[in-house]
Amino acid sequence: MSDWEPKIVAFLCNWCSYAGADLAGVSRIQYPPNVRVVRVPCSGRVNPLFVLKSLENGFDGVLVSGCHPGDCHYISGNYIARRKFATLKTALEFIGVEPGRVQFSWVSAGEGEKFAQVVARVTEDVRKLGPAKRLVKTIGGGQ
């Protein structure tokens, strides 16, 4: 247990947050190595099922990040996404999934530093929550 490290999946939009993550690297800004990135064209591509499935698969946390309002490469994908995220977050927290397991952010292509900060924050939040149990499906049904 002591050497447990949270594993977090991050859905990053190609044009802003993924580029911001690249910029963080290019600028050699260091951040916790706990995030596994799934590149999507737009935060609007993120079906809530992706998030739920990630939790069920045992990721300790999920981060979804897109372009700031107004910056969406696809005009309004992030606005549509924002409505999905709000309902998803409400639903998860209502049934008792810990707040902090699933988080959402806006990170632009120029915000390498913000990306690093967001990852650090989410990692820290998830670390405090401990390994995910709620919604996690383990093979054979046992915990």
Binding site: V9, V38, V40, P41, C42, G44, R45, V46, N47, L49, F50, K53, S54, N57, F59, H73, Y74, S76, G77, I80, A81, K84
Partner: peptide
């Protein structure tokens, strides 16, 4: 952008190159 695909409840819309099953496999 795939906003349509993410919004479809029925799984009828998909985005080539970023299909549901490709992302499903990645997170699984």
């Amino acid at each position: 952008c795939g906003v349509c695909a993410a919004s479809c409840r029925c799984g009828a819309v998909n985005l080539k190159g970023f299909t549901d099953d490709q992302i499903y496999e990645a997170v699984s």
